[in-house]
Write a protein that binds this DNA or RNA. Structure first.
Length: 187
DNA sequence: CTGACGATTCACT
DNA sequence: GTGAATCGTCAGC
């Protein structure tokens, strides 16, 4: 749901995986709007073992493998059987930075530690094993950061990497915090 | 069973 | 700027 994609900006994503606590502030998201969105894995009402997670009630994690290499993390946002989700595209690291650096094992550009959907899952230790986990649990969870993002500093634009979605690729369902250096991709 | 391909990242020209 | 990496998922036979 698009409202939730906006609301998730500034929320803090925590993981406690392999005994390591990590946290990052969400600075970029994308909304995937269920069965009528060509860019959504559940387009047309498709239900498979993988996409079944998106049909769970909001508050679960939907994680999948892309290009055989990267794990992408989403928050399921709607009620049961409404397969909407928000992809977390970028974080600003807050806690466990040393752990993230070790997991990423590539200390070139610091903004690339968690500045991309495949990068932040690597840094936080999230994999497809975590698909379906309850985000109110103690392995992966979200917390409000207090201050909501001022409306003026939220920017929106077309989603990235969904050209196959035809006209739906043009919809402005990507949200990010203006001028935040951790935001991935281009304008 | 088989083949095509992806909500990406990185190395290299 | 281009192309490779790499494998689970999915549709089709």
């Amino acid at each position: 749901m698009e409202t939730i994609a906006r609301e998730l900006l500034n929320a803090v994503l925590y993981t406690r995986i392999d005994g390591q606590l990590c946290a990052g502030r969400i600075v970029e998201t994308e909304a995937y709007a269920g069965t009528v969105d060509r860019a959504c894995h559940a387009y047309g009402g498709r239900r498979t073992k993988r996409t079944e997670i998106m049909y769970l009630p909001g508050g679960h994690a939907y994680v999948y493998l892309i290009y055989g290499i990267h794990h992408l993390f989403n928050v399921v946002t709607h009620r049961k059987d409404q397969p909407h989700a928000v992809l977390i595209r970028a974080l600003e690291p807050l806690e466990g930075v040393e752990v993230m650096i070790r997991r990423r094992n590539r200390p070139d550009n610091p903004y690339k530690l968690t500045g991309g959907p495949g990068l932040l899952t690597r840094a936080l230790g999230i994999t497809t094993r975590d698909s379906g986990v309850d985000l109110t649990g103690d392995r992966i969870w979200l917390e409000e950061s207090g201050e909501p993002v001022p409306e003026k500093t939220i920017v929106r634009g077309p989603r990235i990497g969904v050209d196959y979605a035809g006209a739906d690729a043009l919809l402005h369902r990507r949200y990010w915090i203006k001028d935040n250096p951790w935001v991935s991709g281009k304008k």
